[in-house]
């Protein structure tokens, strides 16, 4: 479903080019759960944002479901994000003045789904993450773990084919992290394609496959059960 071919991403800062991704070629199948690891500044977020159609590659091609992203207009990219992609962020990005339900409804609102349909689906999604009681709460009235569950409800509400998570447990304590990872496991079990950036080996283990990235390049691809047997990891992971 995902095919990256010789993808590079270069940021221009002044006249100093920053090569965030260099010649990345990778294929990810529908239903896969992939973790991306690597040291800070190695290009993990850049890769994820590119997969999420928030960035266009500077070179190479990215095809999602057979569509070449590089050829699409801004409006078409927006539509793609709306229909096919759900984001989970480390720092949640909830709209503070909207309730949990209001936040979950947001993608549906911009997609033009009717109010009653929105409310019904938001209720179901919040129920699925165990927050039925908290639907009317504002983000500030929720614990960080609960906030991330609202974000998961929002990311899944449009039933996207691809869910991208950038350090989803980065701001959470152990117990909350476990809850979030359980939810991701569930999604994966339902056949959802998941790509997750993480620093932690324990978290990466939940995935099927791990990509280790360093200096904008994929330097290692390992099966996650190999992580359990504590293989020789690329130094970038440590």
């Amino acid at each position: 479903m995902i095919q990256l071919t010789n993808v590079s991403k270069t940021y221009e800062v002044g006249d100093q080019p920053v090569h965030a991704l260099v010649d990345v070629t990778e294929r990810i199948q529908t239903g896969e759960f992939v973790a991306i690891m690597g040291s800070s500044g190695s290009g993990k977020s850049t890769l994820l944002n590119l997969l999420g159609c928030l960035l266009r590659p500077s070179a190479g091609s990215y095809t999602l479901n057979g569509q070449d992203i590089g050829t699409l207009s801004d409006v078409e990219l927006s539509r793609l994000r709306q229909k096919f992609i759900g984001f989970i962020f480390q720092s949640f990005h909830l709209v503070p003045r909207l309730t949990a339900a209001g936040n979950v409804e947001l993608p549906m609102m911009f997609a033009g789904i009717s109010t009653s349909e929105r409310q019904r689906r938001a209720r179901e999604a919040l129920e699925a993450v165990g927050l039925t009681e908290r639907a009317k709460h504002l983000p500030a009235q929720l614990s960080v773990g609960q906030r991330q569950r609202v974000v998961i409800a929002r990311a899944t509400i449009m039933r996207p084919q691809l869910i991208l998570a950038d350090e989803p447990t980065g701001n959470l304590d152990r117990a909350s992290s476990e809850q979030i990872l359980k939810l991701l496991d569930q999604l994966h079990a339902q056949g959802q394609t998941l790509i997750m950036v993480t620093h932690e080996v324990d978290v990466a283990r939940r995935a099927e496959r791990v990509l280790v990235i360093d200096d904008g390049q994929i330097v290692q691809r390992i099966k996650s059960d190999a992580l359990i047997r504590d293989p020789v990891l690329h130094p970038a992971v440590k």
Partner: peptide, 16 residues
């Protein structure tokens, strides 16, 4: 600003 970025990531178009 952050909210605008979020809305865009959720599929909101520039016009919206």
């Amino acid at each position: 600003t952050e909210e605008v970025g979020l809305l865009k990531s959720l599929g909101a178009r520039n016009r919206q």
